[in-house]
């Protein structure tokens, strides 16, 4: 869990934040300490200082949101044999995630084996809230999530279980920090812009 500071970060002045960071980095490594000074210099000079397009906000019950994009990270113990099943499923797919394409709101998915392959970390960035669509997933792609997690995570209740939302939330760890280059673009926006860009290129090729 994150440690709490006495003063909330937003209540501190820029100078106070610099001072606090310097104090903390002073007891850290030399490379970190030197690099911090570069960051402070850049932030002060204004070369990299700008108001962000979005700030981290809540993605519903838990997790963070940047503009239209949300993050979800879950760590849970593997079922016995779960790591082998995960690898077999990924090998079987051989990169084919067209079932995920169909959902139309998933930016990425990452599967990591932790702690001597006793746990799996799953991380994803997706558009909006997943919560309103969970019933739709169960109805329209009933196996879409169960094929990713069933038999892999210990205790995955199954997409049809009324407990599935609570299970995810209970294993979810919200990010402390998260950078998104284009928080205003959903997967569908990107698809549309790619199509548009292609059409504009074709047009420009014709008129050049």
């Amino acid at each position: 869990m994150a440690t709490r500071t006495v003063t909330k970060p937003e209540d501190q002045t820029f100078e106070q934040k610099i001072q606090r960071a310097r104090e903390l980095y002073a007891t850290g490594s030399e490379v970190g300490k030197a690099a911090l000074e570069v960051l402070i210099r850049d932030l002060k000079s204004g070369t990299s200082r700008r108001e962000p397009a979005t700030r981290m906000s809540s993605a519903g019950r838990i997790g963070n949101r940047q503009g239209k994009v949300s993050e979800l990270l879950v760590i849970a113990p593997l079922a016995p044999g779960g790591a082998e099943r995960l690898r077999a499923m990924l090998e079987l797919r051989d990169g084919d995630f067209s079932d995920t394409d169909k959902v139309g709101t998933v930016h990425d998915m990452r599967f990591l084996l932790l702690d001597n392959e006793t746990k799996m970390l799953f991380a994803t960035a997706y558009d909006g809230d997943w919560d309103p669509y969970i019933d739709d997933f169960a109805a329209k792609i009933p196996d879409g999530l169960d094929v990713l997690f069933g038999g892999i995570w210990e205790g995955w209740p199954g997409i049809h279980s009324p407990k599935v939302k609570d299970w995810i939330v209970s294993h979810q760890i919200p990010a402390v920090g998260w950078y998104v280059a284009h928080p205003d673009l959903t997967v569908k926006d990107i698809t549309r812009l790619k199509r548009l860009g292609k059409a504009v290129d074709e047009f420009l090729d014709k008129v050049q």
């Binding site: 558009d127 909006g128 309103p132 959903t186 926006d189 698809t191 549309r192």
Partner: peptide, 22 residues
């Protein structure tokens, strides 16, 4: 209410992503 009125209001009436309309 959650998957009926609230869903229709939040996903279909006040957003356009479901029809690729930003």
């Amino acid at each position: 209410l959650h998957r009926q009125f609230e869903f229709i209001q939040s996903q279909w009436i006040t957003d356009g992503n479901f029809i690729s309309h930003g």
